[in-house]
Design a protein around this nucleic acid. Structure first.
Length: 110
DNA sequence: TGTTTGACCACGG
DNA sequence: GCCGTGGCCAAAC
């Protein structure tokens, strides 16, 4: 088995670095990794369920909406997990998303 | 092997 | 501020 390091791994790594109670967007990851397309991030997270311990529930679209909730084992699991971390979800959207928004580049800042 | 879709985003009107 | 279109790369059909 030879799994070549692709942007997938990068997305997984960044997603794992997302602080608890904080959320990020596909575009932020894509921009930080310079993938060229935020779509790849979505695909990567979709594949992330292949045995990767990646908190994909912390990744939302730029609207702060839980767009990928339907891809979870249960459509409510994503919201439950976020609320479990202290993130309030209203109408499938992250409350104070702008305030809870975390950028991968913040790692360099810290 | 070519076409279509996909957990999206940025830009223009 | 909302709607339509383009772009991006990869996987599914």
């Amino acid at each position: 088995m030879k799994e070549e390091p692709t942007y997938y791994d990068l997305v997984y790594a960044v997603t794992r670095q997302v602080p608890r109670g904080r959320v990020t967007t596909y575009g932020a990851i894509a921009d930080y990794l310079a993938l060229g397309s935020a779509r790849m991030v979505g695909w990567a997270l979709h594949q992330s369920f292949g045995g990767h311990d990646v908190p994909a529930h912390r990744v939302v679209n730029r609207k702060g909406e839980l767009s990928g909730r339907v891809h979870f084992p249960t459509p409510t699991m994503m919201q439950e997990m976020l609320e479990q971390e202290g993130v309030r979800i209203v109408d499938n959207q992250v409350v104070a998303f702008k305030d809870l928004f975390w950028h991968p580049a913040a790692l360099d800042e810290e």
